[in-house]
């Protein structure tokens, strides 16, 4: 464990908490992509499938974190698609999720470290996570704006990815650890946030809301 990974994971937890709090406090999921949240839930379930295959005793932080990620993302989906369904902006959340799921699944079967069910599910979750934010970014580009709290959520989510890149540089340097699939997918994912980072720094940090030109 190094400081980049620690802060990356904490940032990831913060992102999940910010989104849940936003939905819970405002009793609304307006501006939030249900598809992105559904894709993240699929990512966590397929990545941490080992939790369901073996008896889980909560003796280490990692397992607790995995369970938090899975339950929080499933709960977020429950809020969006059931409890606060009336506030869900389904018409604007129009990116086709299958266009992300199918290529991620296909690529996971073709490019993986080992052709084994658990390993392919892990690889699929990595590829899917790389593009899972796209429906959310697409929704913002369609509505032309993002609430400040949604921007904070995206910033925390993007920071988590950027910190993971620093973590990989650190691990390559000090531990000779290289996981090519995770690194390539992680870099792709981080690049997707760059445009948003620019808007966040030029608008949100200065107290303005993100409004895109029509």
């Amino acid at each position: 464990m190094n400081i980049f990974r620690l802060f990356g994971d904490l940032s990831h937890l913060a992102a999940i908490a910010i989104l849940l709090l936003k939905i819970w406090k405002t009793r609304s999921c307006a501006g939030v992509s249900g598809k992105t949240q559904l894709l993240f839930a699929v990512c966590f379930i397929t990545r941490y499938i080992d939790l369901f295959l073996h008896f889980v005793s909560l003796y280490n932080t990692e397992k607790v974190m995995k369970l938090i990620y899975i339950s929080a993302s499933v709960f977020t989906c429950y809020l969006i698609f059931f409890k606060f369904k009336a506030t869900y902006d389904g018409n604007h959340d129009s990116m086709r999720a299958e266009f992300l799921i199918v290529p991620a699944a296909g690529l996971a079967c073709l490019i993986n470290t080992k052709f084994d069910a658990i390993e392919i599910l892990w690889t699929f979750s990595i590829y899917l996570e790389a593009v899972a934010i796209l429906p959310q970014l697409f929704l913002i580009s369609k509505t032309g704006e993002a609430e400040t709290i949604t921007s904070h959520y995206l910033f925390a989510q993007g920071s988590y990815r950027a910190l993971y890149i620093l973590n990989w540089i650190y691990r390559y340097h000090y531990e000779s650890h290289v996981d090519t699939i995770a690194i390539v997918a992680g870099v792709v994912q981080t690049i997707l946030y760059c445009d948003f980072f620019y808007l966040y720094i030029t608008k949100v940090v200065k107290g303005q809301k993100i409004v895109l030109p029509a």
Binding site: D9, M65, Y69, T113, W122, D179
Partner: peptide, 10 residues
């Protein structure tokens, strides 16, 4: 090769 690959990141 012990069969199971070990992914230690979350």
């Amino acid at each position: 090769d012990n069969g199971q690959l070990f992914h230690d990141e979350l």
